[in-house]
Design a protein around this nucleic acid. Sequence first.
DNA 1: TGTGTCGGTTGACAAGGGTCAACATTACCG
DNA 2: CGGTAATGTTGACCCTTGTCAACCGACACA
Lengths: 247, 247
Amino acid sequence: MNQSIQVRQTATNTKSSCQYCSLSNLCLPLALDSSEMNRLDEVVNRDRIFNRGEQVFTQNAPFHACFAVKSGAIKTSVVTESGEEQITGFFMPGDLVGLDSMSDDTHASSAKALERTSVCEIPVDQLEALAHIMPGMQHHILHLMSQEIRNSHQLSVLLSKNTAEERIAALLLSLSTRFHRRKLSPTHFNLPMARNDIANFLGLAVETVSRVFTRFQNQGLIRARGRDIELVNIEALQAMALGNTQA
Amino acid sequence: MNQSIQVRQTATNTKSSCQYCSLSNLCLPLALDSSEMNRLDEVVNRDRIFNRGEQVFTQNAPFHACFAVKSGAIKTSVVTESGEEQITGFFMPGDLVGLDSMSDDTHASSAKALERTSVCEIPVDQLEALAHIMPGMQHHILHLMSQEIRNSHQLSVLLSKNTAEERIAALLLSLSTRFHRRKLSPTHFNLPMARNDIANFLGLAVETVSRVFTRFQNQGLIRARGRDIELVNIEALQAMALGNTQA
DNA sequence: TGTGTCGGTTGACAAGGGTCAACATTACCG
DNA sequence: CGGTAATGTTGACCCTTGTCAACCGACACA
């Protein structure tokens, strides 16, 4: 109740606002001119809010929309027939979630809000239609999807070739650059996800994640108090992520 | 020399032949009517041949074409900054290779022929243009790319959650269904890739792959003489792939 | 026929990281 | 504010898998 009111409020305030959205340089509008942006504005369902832990969409449910993160953070995951869950990505403001189900009729993964998160909902048939009208949009979507493939390949490498320390160093650095790109501090930030999520994502046990964090801390690479993370020695972390053990 | 003659020959024989290609139900034409197929035919560079071990394209090289496998097999791989290579996929007739670089200007991965392989080369600017004209084509490409994402996610799960035996069982079954879909025997086939490739793909050491193969053989699950593989007990393999250890 | 190379198999051993268990800390909520 | 659950940390132990090394068979080639 309370929530839906808030949604409507915000929607009114920011009506037709892709143009004014602070994320326009990260998000879909990136590829559009202002008249095209207006078309996009018309189909976007703005400011849907999800509380921490709420499901944005669920694997195998009918697929009819992608979601652009406005604020907060989202994790996506797939569950196998054998019932094991694997987190496939963390999404931050400006990111587009749900591309792995593009042109399919059911969701290939689930998405859950890691904290209070607001998103723009973009109906997929409309998105395809826009892509068909606007070459720039089509190009951009193909680009985003290929990037998603690359990210996933990157994850595969991490999972199959790197040690626990390398994986965690790589994750921290990846988060760092992503925060940086969003005009936030690249050296001091709050993890949006729990240790559990990190462990799952990186294919490790929670205990291992915990141990590596304290080891990094003892080596003076980071300072960590719960989810509050400070990267103290980025160069060493980078060396570590590349497999140079003698950090 | 010899080879280029052969190429030209074959190209002449099969001129404008998406319609008659035996793979049209797997490949791009799947989504097209016959007039659209003619348009596609015009832009396809048919029957380029690669010998075993030849590079189809190389990571970071300028990207201007996707490749549809006509016969043979291709592996794709990415190398990280730290110099480690990870095979990201095996491609069989009807599959489209290179989608991970869509709408980018350099290749995100390398592709190498595992055996003598013929492909159709599809210039990417043309492909985008066709997609722009034909909604069915756009839809299909988005679909293929999302499927690629899903495959990669699947690989991530395999790498992070499954034991060596489970991974290999899953790979064998995946190959089995892929052969089956191409009207070949799902229980008796020749592996297009070396043990080494399997090991790399599954994030294992070659020795482990070897050991698991012989273990499977001793358990009566498969019969393996080099690359010649026979799946003897598919149900047990499926149980194994799902993590039911008591096979 | 010998020799080198490559791919595959097998054995011995070590280690990275999982599992189990106990404990500490934080977050949540009536 | 206190009690309970969820989350994070640490320790001990063990198992799966990687590493190192030897060996085999197939194939190419001189």
